[in-house]
Nucleic acid binder design. Sequence first.
DNA 1: GGTTGAAAGTGACTTAGCGTCATTTTATAT
DNA 2: ATATAAAATGACGCTAAGTCACTTTCAACC
Lengths: 246, 246
Amino acid sequence: MKLLHINEVKKISGVSVRTLRYYDQMNLLKPISKTEGGHRLYSSIELKKLQQIQFLKTIGFQLKEIKKMLDSEEWDWSSSLMKQLSYVKAQKDDLTEIEFNLRELINGVVIDGEDFRIKKLMDLYSKKSRNIPPYDKADLRIRNAEVLNKLPKMSSTDADSLEWIALIGQLNKHMKLGYSHSRIQNIIRRMDEKRLEDYGGEDDFLDELWKIRMSPQASDNYNLYPIDQKVLDFMQQAYNHYLEKI
Amino acid sequence: MKLLHINEVKKISGVSVRTLRYYDQMNLLKPISKTEGGHRLYSSIELKKLQQIQFLKTIGFQLKEIKKMLDSEEWDWSSSLMKQLSYVKAQKDDLTEIEFNLRELINGVVIDGEDFRIKKLMDLYSKKSRNIPPYDKADLRIRNAEVLNKLPKMSSTDADSLEWIALIGQLNKHMKLGYSHSRIQNIIRRMDEKRLEDYGGEDDFLDELWKIRMSPQASDNYNLYPIDQKVLDFMQQAYNHYLEKI
DNA sequence: GGTTGAAAGTGACTTAGCGTCATTTTATAT
DNA sequence: ATATAAAATGACGCTAAGTCACTTTCAACC
């Protein structure tokens, strides 16, 4: 049986030398033996165990847990996995909420266009929370959501401003193809779809916004993502062409 | 103006005494004064700031970021928020994948009801991962060539690109303030920081890229996000000014 | 004014998973 | 034998505090 030096293990597994030494120190993965001079030697058994460790890491377990799992011969895998799943789900829910709050804020900032906007939000938040003395994490989230509901209608529809930016960028990039090119028309169609998705097409105010987007003063008045006059003109042309064809 | 002792601040805000001392130590939230004996005293101003900190924490910012935000009078909120959003999205994607893997495993374990089921899966994984080319620093150079693909171009999923776009957009918008204005210089500083973050700043090759960014042919040659000549010139001016000052 | 107990202070250690030096020792090739 | 690569150990850094240990100050009561 050929024994491997630490650097060879690294090359095979992709795990850094530092990490391997750390695993040794933590008693998570010990080398099968050492040379007289103290250099670590690994066999294929350790290699396999190492890959199991890597796998368990990819599903989010901590090294301590992994150690316990691999140390005990009869581990209750299903209960561990279930527990891990609910933990991961909770984490994801937290992030989903953060993402939601961020989107609301971004819309607020982008549409209102001034930095005091976010400061206002924060002030509102502090006023409300001052009345509620006890600290409770669940409570914080609820109050936060309440504050965000007070934002203008615009943002509560959760417009994906990032995709708008991407679409406009695409338009800009491919302008030289001409407004009737299929690529351009695809982008325009997506924009129109998105306009309907985001704003339902029922609210006059939102159609207004589409027009505002088309106007050269957009960036001055509404602090939207700045768009070149050229791109705006081109978008208008392409949009007209699109409307004629449907 | 009534001043509060640390325990009263804790009762009102829910932030632990240890945390308040930590914030003081980090220069994030300093008490307005101290008693002769060194006890911390807070005013309503600090309370308010504390609640802003808590709010920014709920949307996932780190304390360091929060410090920078609250320290600078004119913070580029939209760029920060965009960056944070893409970061959160990436985190969520990771968790989604973990969740998927976990569900597969649980199904396997639950259906089969035997522990060898998961061990099989793990073996499968080891086989798979063995095919993945090993991590090698020499290889980094090759992959660095792919850095070009990471440059600001329009793709709504690329975290870095979004912030670049936001920053360039901000620059465009506030150009009329002049290149030496603090707001502009803040944006430039962030760009320079970001340049270092993204590319490490150690490789000449990457400095080259910064120069390429500065060249008007960038969008033609490298498929970068198209930037107006005016903005590029302005950016160059502001950047020179920034370099002179540091 | 002295004592006392509560509250405040500081400092050090802990968490996870390594990265990144710095320094010294071992293995290997010539 | 020596040069050099590669290995070893040790220490510090990162987040955002929690926890422990020990010391000092505050406020009130006798």
